Simulated assay, not measured.
Amino acid sequence: MKSKQLYPEASLALSAKRSSLAPEIAEAFRNFSQAVFKEGALPEKTKQLIAVAVAHVTQCPYCIRSHTAQAIRKGATQHEIIEAVWIAAEMQAGGAVSHSKLAIDEMESLEEA
Rank of each mutant, 00 (worst) to 15 (best):
L110G: 00
S33P: 00
A103V: 15
E111R: 12
P61G: 01
K17S: 10
T77G: 02
S100N: 11
V54H: 00
K45L: 07
A16H: 10
E39V: 04
Q5W: 08
Q5M: 13
I72Q: 08
V97W: 15
P43L: 07
E111M: 09
G75H: 05
I50S: 04
A93N: 13
K47L: 03
K4N: 11
T58K: 07
E44M: 11
G95Y: 09
L102D: 06
T68C: 02
T58P: 00
A84Y: 00
D105P: 01
S100A: 07
L49D: 02
A53Y: 03
A13H: 09
I72D: 02
K74Y: 04
Q48R: 06
T58V: 12
V97G: 03
A13T: 11
P8C: 10
H67I: 07
A89I: 06
C60N: 04
Q34L: 13
H56P: 01
K17C: 03
K17M: 11
A103S: 12
P8F: 05
E90W: 07
R30N: 14
I50P: 00
Q5K: 14
S15Y: 12
I87S: 07
D105R: 09
A35F: 09
A55R: 02
N31A: 15
T77I: 07
A93T: 10
I81A: 00
E24P: 10
A103G: 04
E106C: 02
K74F: 05
L12P: 02
L49N: 01
R73T: 07
A113Q: 11
K4M: 12
A41S: 13
A51S: 14
E80K: 05
K4G: 05
G95C: 10
Y62T: 02
A13Y: 06
E111P: 00
L110R: 13
S11V: 07
A69P: 00
L21E: 15
A84Q: 01
L42V: 00
L21Q: 14
A89H: 03
A16R: 12
T77A: 03
K74Q: 11
E80M: 05
Q78Y: 00
S98Y: 13
A69E: 10
G94H: 09
A22L: 13
H79V: 06
S20I: 03
A113K: 13
S66A: 14
A28D: 12
P23E: 05
R30K: 15
E111F: 05
S100E: 05
M91P: 03
V57D: 01
I25V: 15
S33H: 12
Y7W: 15
Q48L: 03
H79K: 10
H79N: 08
M1K: 09
Y7C: 11
V85C: 04
M1E: 07
E24M: 10
I82M: 14
A93W: 10
W86K: 13
I72C: 03
A76K: 01
E39A: 11
V97Y: 15
A35G: 09
I25P: 00
L42G: 08
S3K: 14
A103F: 14
F37G: 01
V57Y: 01
S11I: 06
Q59N: 10
Y62Q: 02
H79F: 05
V36W: 03
S11H: 07
E24N: 15
V57W: 01
A55S: 15
G94R: 05
K17G: 04
A35C: 05
V97C: 08
E24L: 13
L6W: 09
A35I: 04
